[in-house]
Nucleic acid binder design. Structure first.
Lengths: 208, 208
DNA sequence: GAAAAAGATTGAATGAGTTCATTTTTTAAG
DNA sequence: CTTAAAAAATGAACTCATTCAATCTTTTTC
């Protein structure tokens, strides 16, 4: 059948992705030229474009791997969350934020976000948006779960509250990657303060 | 002193900005070449770069003017807001959203947002970020004002709540410009639903 | 196993944003 | 008014992402 050809293809794909992520981390996204990536991956420039539509695509591919890991880590927390809204949110959001800079630099995040906004119809942008949606769902699922357990007052729209928490943490993450000087702890503190009113109020009177 | 020189400078700057905004609106951001903008403004390509650091800068400059108008329109509402949190928010956010597409296309918004995220250190990006901050302050000011009037329960962190409302409306606006098919009404409905839990709860028991 | 077909690779050419050494214009000094 | 200094404009050259016609490799056919 397609023994050699398929094997070579998979191998080249792996080499290109590895070369690109290495160079992006080493020298930054802008400074890494397609020529450099191609050379490191031992393919021609043309071949790079047979595997990825454009330079941004390969970055979003790298980001996708990262977000998948964050989702997996978050899943564990959602499956067995702390009892109160505040504690549960702090655990989940802390997990998200702590994981965010393991593989990717702030510059890489900025570029990936910029691409996903600017070219929303490109395949990888759609994938990025889909991953964002799954993260949002995860926060909403957490709220729904807490509501079933009595940690959130009945009658509250738990999904809407979850979306609001997510949009807030996401927007603040954008602020964070825009500011090279901002520390993770500062980000967490700010989001914690912003979330507190809603987190406290939906928990019901017993928390007051 | 610096009579002629300053006058010519201001004039060229105005011509370049006008040429760029016209062409961006007429043919889209990507299709408008620096050469076209320079030609229309009757300057050389090099001169364009003496006035703006790069192509994106001038778009962000145009968008910033738009945000200034939105801020001015919002100010009127904040000065004399509806009594309830829900109504006041609906009025202010509706004003923001309705104004957003008067001069700018979704493509222009996408590009401007992408640039302001990707190149946060460029002067116009800083300006854009600062304007975002003022919009956020405007929402917080509205909440503080409502709290003084009794529309928001005492003891609530009105500023934090305002920031959360703003981050939510801002994130949803990004979703809106990413999706060419989404209508303004859909956006308003979604944001309205997301805001409802917090808006209702901070209003206190009388609203229930 | 040779020839044809299909699938991939290649790198020079293209095009648009950006730079920078040179030239031109304006201002200040004598 | 002349000349020197400062500021600004200029456009050809450069960089780098992207394309595509030519070439090479693998698979299929007989």
């Amino acid at each position: 059948m397609t023994g050699l050809r398929a094997k070579q293809k998979a191998d080249r794909n792996r080499r290109i992705l590895e070369a690109a992520t290495t160079l992006f981390r080493e020298m930054g996204y802008d400074a890494a030229r397609i020529e450099d990536i191609a050379e490191r991956a031992e393919v021609s420039v043309g071949t790079f474009y047979n595997y990825y539509q454009n330079k941004g695509d390969i970055l979003v591919a790298a980001v996708s791997m990262e977000v998948e890991e964050v989702l997996a880590a978050g899943k564990i927390i959602v499956e067995n969350p702390p009892a109160t809204v505040s504690e549960a949110l702090q655990a989940l959001i802390g997990q998200y934020y702590d994981h965010s800079l393991v593989y990717l630099s702030k510059e890489m995040w900025r570029t990936a976000m910029a691409i996903s906004i600017q070219q929303p119809e490109s395949p990888f942008s759609k994938r990025y948006t889909e991953l964002d949606g799954r993260l949002c769902d995860q926060v909403s699922t957490l709220m729904t779960k807490l509501q079933l357990r009595g940690g959130v007052m009945p009658g509250i729209d738990a999904v809407a509250a979850g979306q609001m928490f997510f949009n807030n943490l996401n927007m603040m993450f954008i602020e964070f990657v825009k500011d090279e000087a901002m520390e993770l702890d500062t980000l967490k503190d700010m989001v914690g303060r912003q979330n507190r009113p809603l987190a406290t109020l939906i928990s019901g009177p017993k928390i007051q």
